[in-house]
Amino acid sequence: MLVRKLKELIIEKIIFLCGVLSIIFVGLIFLFLLKEGLALFKFISPGGFLFGKSWYPISEPAQLGVLPLILGSLIVTLGAAVISIPIGVGCAVYIAEVAPAKTKEVLKTGIELLAAIPSVVLGFIGMVTLVPWVKNIFHLPTGLTALSGSIMLAFMAMPTIVSIAEDALYSVPKSYKEGALALGATRWQSIYRVMLPAASSGILAAVMLGLGRVIGETMAVMMITGNAAVIPQSILVPVRTLTATIAAEMGEAVVGSEHYFALFAVGIVLFVISFAINVTADLFLHKKR
């Protein structure tokens, strides 16, 4: 009896410790990021950093305008959203509402497999297949473009979007569908007039989480977007994202230099964007009517 109670107590404490530790770690990481990132503003003004149009960290004097990187990330993400949202939501509707049981299993397994492909592998495949296609189809000097990145990232967002949106559709009460069909609605009408609105908050959350994955993705993007830190005029030019910049330059930045602090500041920008996306997703997921 006493032993059991003691065991309970110890387990409880350990779990508590784990919870607290994870919060402490997150807090420490955040503090570190903040401390290193904000140090940049001893060198340049926040406005100059955020709205500066050129990123030449090793020229003399260094130009550390993050705008091209933000726009690079946004255009790649936007492209990925345009591709992955309709396909992902469509696929979720098909799996949840239309597909016969067998097809459903096959599709779900396929989606899980897609999620399991490491991003570097996807990036590599994209580099040897997608990049030449984009180059040839649009007659470009190089296929390493924002578009290539968008297509690749759409593949990474899709599993998240499909599985969460499918869950959302699946948890819509059957009685809604019955009600719609009993009123003479066709299957398609019942889906888009009742099921989709009923699942809308879950679907929006799915989209946000999918895009959260996209914006934080590094490896594949670095491999196929061309990495040119210029403000993109279209989706068919090379761009450089926030993530790729940090990954590519952290190794060569001298610790304590302006460049070094600037990369941390880029990290803060990325953090803020991801955080905003996740919070939005959370709001949708927990929205109560």
Binding site: P173, S175, Y176, G179, A185, R193, V194
Partner: peptide, 28 residues
Amino acid sequence: RKKVGMVFQRPNPFPLSIYENIVFGPKV
């Protein structure tokens, strides 16, 4: 189904506005 309507055991209005619920059938 337009001619033969059904009311269910558990009331199952759609998660839409009152108005949209009523005009659902005619719109469809």
